[in-house]
Write a protein that binds this DNA or RNA. Structure first.
Lengths: 351, 351
DNA sequence: TTGTAAGCGTTATCAC
DNA sequence: GTGATAACGCTTACAA
């Protein structure tokens, strides 16, 4: 079933069929056009994009590298990117890398062999060598800060984490711990730096072991919090993402600690689960879906030959129910003792 | 940068380069092979799969249709499918459809134009017409029950929901509500049927309005639970997935109801969040990741010409902390009043 | 307005 | 063992 079959049925040449189907402004007599369209419909003809791509040297496919789609953070980014792509008629080829350099390299090779029109790297980082390999072949853009010279869409994680930490310090906390994501994550490292710098600014010396590195998952947060409770006395916990925060909430509860009465907890990202947890999670909202959209737009602009550079999107602290002044602190009476709202007009908002 | 460049540099013909690079058993002299490999490395040559696919009539790409990757259920399936695909050297092209028939049809067309070697439909359903269109072009398989004749990997949702509901009935509940997913979802409908049949078997007549249809999200579950509380008196809530259950937990808490003391809640799927919520969610574990793997294996078997048929995987009820006998029921003293475990050896398991 | 023909980068089929 | 050569299905000058 090729363009020639359609041509034969319509009694025209393949070239004419191509012109009708691509409608690229080339003049075609109206009744020829109709005959071609009808023939294509009858034969249920699908043009072969491989052939077209081979000739045109572009595939209308973009590649997307993520550590793990099961992580809601990347799923949201992917969704945003995909929405833009589909809207513009492009397809998306997805690769999970688990931040594994080998898998990353393999995935990149696959994408390049398939001659994708561009690559988006979300979380995880290409080495300079990988990047040199891509050089001149297709544009590459990133979500989140990228060590190599790649235009990227991101939030200022250092700043955001600093703000979250300051929120806790402002409430009067002095024992603030940080549940960090995997050290291989740039995002995790930036958030740790923000946390550190907020402490430093406030003149607070963090305890040894107040930073626990773990996985970006609920179980990771749970395990990290347990470890933390074994060795430190803390009144506030800042987690590297919402899932970790949720895991920490559970660990604290198991330890007989109430949130926020005994310990305050702050998450990161503002995933849907954060809004409905009990207590609802104070968290730094990161516009993941929008980042996905923007990074795809950035890539497409680059592909179209426009010169475009990265963007820094705003992250915003959302104070909900999981933070309060520490027990016995100077403002301890503020916002205390009402861990359960009176009635239905509570804090959970409908987007 | 083509195979000819490599050939020229190595001082051989393109055919020889192809033979070396594909190593498909064709004999090549050892030092020729080395020269070719060296030339390819030097030029950093990536074979063009478009050309190869065009000739071979297979692309080593499979298409995956999901309603929404942001839903952890589909993300897990996708991850499973992708792991198998990559392991076998295949790429995955992803399309989000939002269960929208138009988007579904568009996505399918895109995939077919790109000449994917097969299509996996997860959630959402192809019409008979769509399927006829695919007929004979590429194999199609589904995750979850599919109305049209498509081999599928699934769990028995009717049975699973019945079991979950029976768990509540066995505890002594008689007022069991169901928070259903969107009616366009086969899974949602099957789960409703299982719920209904359990009630029927137990001789319980459900109240009008004890089934509330909503979205497969935390907000959906939250809203549905609010609606439910406005019009019914219930002692147990069965939710169509974990996110909905988590939303319901929140709504109940806001209404001043304790779980499980006042109301029991059961989720579905056993996502990571379910294990760490407070109380930890009793839920029906669905092997989503495994389903993803299996459906990809099924597709590849079909593609390889083997005749293979669908599988029904087991779902298993995991009783955790969110269910207990109803207040004042015959077994009301069992499992009551210990909503907080004594110590650290609590129920949260590390996978 | 339409047709002819070249060629995109591979690989399979023949020769040698 | 290796090299020509002819496809694969399409688009696009160029000709008519």
């Amino acid at each position: 079933m090729t363009i020639h079959d359609v041509a034969r049925l319509a009694g025209v040449s393949a070239a004419t069929v191509s012109r009708v189907l691509n409608g690229a402004g080339h003049p075609v007599r109206e009744d020829t056009r109709r005959r071609v369209l009808e023939a294509a419909r009858l034969l249920d003809y699908y043009p072969n994009r491989l052939a077209r791509s081979l000739l045109r040297r572009e595939t209308a496919v973009v590649g997307l590298l993520v550590p793990d789609v099961s992580n809601p953070y990347y799923a949201a980014i992917l969704r945003g990117a995909e929405d833009v792509a589909h809207q513009r008629g492009l397809a998306v080829m997805l690769c999970n890398t688990d931040r594994d350099p080998t898998k990353q390299r393999q995935a990149l090779r696959t994408l390049l062999e398939h001659r994708v029109d561009g690559v988006i790297v979300a979380g995880g980082t290409l080495t300079a060598a990988d990047l040199a390999r891509v050089d001149g072949r297709v544009p590459v853009v990133a979500v989140g800060r990228h060590p190599a010279r790649v235009p990227c869409v991101r939030v200022d994680n250092v700043q955001a984490a600093r703000q979250a930490c300051r929120h806790l310090l402002d409430l009067g906390h002095t024992q603030v711990a940080f549940l960090a994501g995997p050290p291989s994550s740039y995002t995790a490292r930036d958030r740790v730096r923000g946390y550190m710098s907020a402490l430093r600014e406030a003149g607070v010396r963090p305890d040894d072991g107040s930073v626990v590195w773990s996985e970006f998952t609920a179980q990771g947060g749970y395990a990290a919090a347990r470890q933390l409770l074994d060795r430190c006395q803390v009144t506030a916990v800042l987690a590297c993402n919402d899932q970790m925060a949720l895991g920490a909430l559970r660990a604290l509860w198991e330890a007989g600690l109430r949130v926020p009465a005994d310990v305050s907890v702050v998450g990161f990202d503002d995933t849907p689960a954060a809004a409905v947890s009990v207590p609802a999670l104070t968290t730094v909202a990161v516009p993941t879906y929008e980042m996905g959209r923007r990074v795809m737009e950035l890539l497409l602009a680059l592909r179209a030959g426009h010169r475009a550079s990265g963007v820094v999107l705003p992250a915003e602290l959302k104070v909900r129910e999981s933070t309060a002044p520490p027990r016995g602190g100077p403002y301890a009476s503020v916002g205390r003792g009402k861990t359960r709202p009176e009635g239905r007009e509570a804090t959970c908002r409908h987007p």
